[in-house]
């Protein structure tokens, strides 16, 4: 995935679409941001200057689906293999019914991409009607995170299979990329040198967050501002 921060206006449509697509629960008070479940978190980065030189930019952060050799930081530590990386497609999945809620993966992930279900997820009765049957609802005491809309991949693969095409070559778009009104999010196969994402990842504006940790995130960002590049890693 590549997210163009120059285009992104922080409208948060991506994050809201993700909530709707993935049956993410919400509570009456969501102002404790350290306990709020948001798979696509929108960070506000500031340039540190005073009025009127002050500037900020938004940075949407899904799971980075870290590509570090052998294991992602989170999959390495999960004692029960509830979160694993599918080496065929690179997606770091999370099997909710297997998660024991030890939160070791939360501790391991430097991007805060993982959220714990501190409460029983409940919906106001009428809103249960808008829950998608394509994504299972979670239960209290387990962790969850962005799955790169794994269910959409499975659907695309199933369709390809039925249409007699090779399921391994399908492309799809996650809900956030679909929703983005500025087309700031590009999604595709980084391994395919011809794909838009592979090309954008080589753009001079491209960078990754915390590159020095060698987590090899599969989410790239684009920005024309040096101060944003600087904020992406410890100097």
């Amino acid at each position: 995935m590549v997210i163009d921060l120059d285009k992104c206006t922080g409208c948060m449509a991506c994050s809201v679409a993700c909530q709707a697509e993935n049956n993410i629960s919400f509570r009456v008070d969501e102002t404790d941001k350290l306990r709020s479940i948001t798979w696509m978190e929108i960070y506000k980065l500031e340039n540190g200057k005073d009025y009127p030189e002050y500037q900020f930019t938004y940075l949407p952060r899904p799971c980075m689906h870290c590509d570090s050799p052998h294991h992602s930081p989170c999959t390495f530590v999960c004692p029960v293999n509830a979160t694993t990386r599918d080496e065929n497609n690179g997606i770091v999945t999370h099997i909710v019914p297997r998660c024991i809620g030890c939160r070791y993966c939360i501790v391991a992930c430097p991007y805060h991409a993982r959220d714990f279900n501190w409460w029983d997820p409940t919906w106001p009765k009428p809103m249960e009607q808008m829950l998608s049957p394509e994504v299972s609802t979670r239960m209290r005491g387990v962790v969850e995170k962005c799955t790169f809309c794994h269910q959409r991949l499975l659907k695309a693969r199933t369709r390809a299979y039925h249409e007699g095409q090779d399921p391994n070559t399908v492309t799809y778009n996650p809900a956030c990329a679909d929703a983005c009104p500025t087309k700031a999010i590009t999604f595709g196969n980084l391994m395919d040198a011809q794909s838009d994402v592979a090309k954008l990842a080589k753009d001079p504006r491209a960078f990754r967050i915390l590159a020095k940790l060698k987590t090899e995130p599969k989410v790239y960002y684009l920005s024309r501002y040096q101060w944003v590049h600087k904020l992406s890693d410890n100097a």
Binding site: I100, Y104, G141, V142, V143
Partner: peptide, 18 residues
């Protein structure tokens, strides 16, 4: 652990790297 009833998963689905 958030799901104590699943505590035994550590034996059932062990991740040898963890």
């Amino acid at each position: 652990i958030g799901q104590p009833l699943r505590g035994w998963f550590g034996y059932w689905h062990p991740n040898v790297h963890s």
